[in-house]
């Protein structure tokens, strides 16, 4: 009883076992790679080889679809659990000094009077990501880009920690709180839109997503339109672009007005 007797055509178990296995493989391969591709009348193949390649999953460019633009910079920010962990008092102090140059737009207490984002108490990861994206050119803004372009990694981290450390304050001209529109509560499942709060803090916070309560209505509207038009493209995997594209102008209006009217102290804190 040795393997020599086993792996030989004289052994009927070998013949039958290997034969049946190979036969099943060949039959299923012919069915999967040739018969079934051609059974789909809505797909056209140049020849049999084309069908086989398609069924095998060889990357092909579908006709009529333009290649994504390679020229534009993409966001390259990576956050690990240690990037912004436990800032020291000195780091926050350094951030406070650096933040003096931000105050002209973002306000001396981190609350803006100029339709710029309120940064006081914003999640550190958000400020960290946006500053990196402004610096790398993944996000551009005529006013903001020149400020970010010369920041070092350390300065970005310090600024993020400083603003995250500040208490959340109400906006300068709070409006009466509006009721929640449907797009905020439910999103629009049939269009692939999750409720805003699933990422933006009121239900859960997904890393890199800002809280929105009390932010400038004009700013939020402008950003949603920029996402929808593809002018702003530093969202990872097009998460925000896909959502903004599927939103109607009325929904953009309603969501921005709702969030602008909310006090920021209801936002979920980060652990």
């Amino acid at each position: 009883m040795s393997t020599r007797d086993l792996f030989t055509l004289r052994n009927s178990h070998f013949r039958i076992g290997v034969g049946i296995t190979a036969a099943i493989l060949i039959v299923t391969a012919i069915a999967g790679f040739i018969v079934l591709p051609f059974a789909q009348p809505w797909v056209k193949f140049a020849d049999v080889w084309d069908a086989i390649c398609s069924a095998a999953g060889v990357p092909q460019r579908a006709a009529g679809v333009t290649a994504p633009e390679q020229g534009k910079r993409l966001s390259e920010v990576v956050l690990t659990s240690n990037t912004l962990a436990r800032p020291s008092q000195e780091a926050i102090g350094r951030g406070a000094t650096l933040a003096q140059r931000c105050a002209i737009c973002h306000g001396p207490t981190g609350v803006s009077r100029a339709d710029s984002p309120n940064l006081a108490g914003q999640y550190a990861a958000v400020i960290y990501k946006q500053l990196h994206d402004f610096r790398s050119g993944a996000r551009t803004n005529a006013v903001m880009s020149p400020f970010a372009i010369n920041l070092t990694d350390q300065e970005i981290t310090d600024l993020s920690n400083y603003y995250a450390y500040l208490p959340r304050l109400p906006a300068y001209h709070p409006t009466p709180q509006l009721p929640k529109p449907n797009i905020v509560i439910y999103g629009a499942p049939m269009r692939g839109i999750a409720p805003c709060g699933a990422c933006h803090g009121s239900l859960d916070n997904k890393t890199g997503s800002p809280w929105l309560e009390g932010q400038s209505e004009a700013y939020m509207k402008a950003q949603l339109h920029a996402f929808a038009a593809g002018e702003r493209r530093n969202d990872i995997s097009q998460q925000m672009r896909n959502i903004a594209r599927a939103m109607t102008p009325q929904e953009i209006e309603a969501a921005a007005a709702y969030y602008a009217s909310q006090p920021p102290d209801v936002v979920k804190a980060v652990d």
């Binding site: 493989l25 299923t28 069915a31 999967g32 790679f33 079934l36 398609s54 069924a55 095998a56 060889v58």
Partner: peptide
């Protein structure tokens, strides 16, 4: 989407 339909069929048959 990263797996070809032909391989999905073979795996389904097995």
């Amino acid at each position: 989407p990263q797996v070809g339909a032909g391989f999905k069929f073979i795996h389904s048959a097995f």
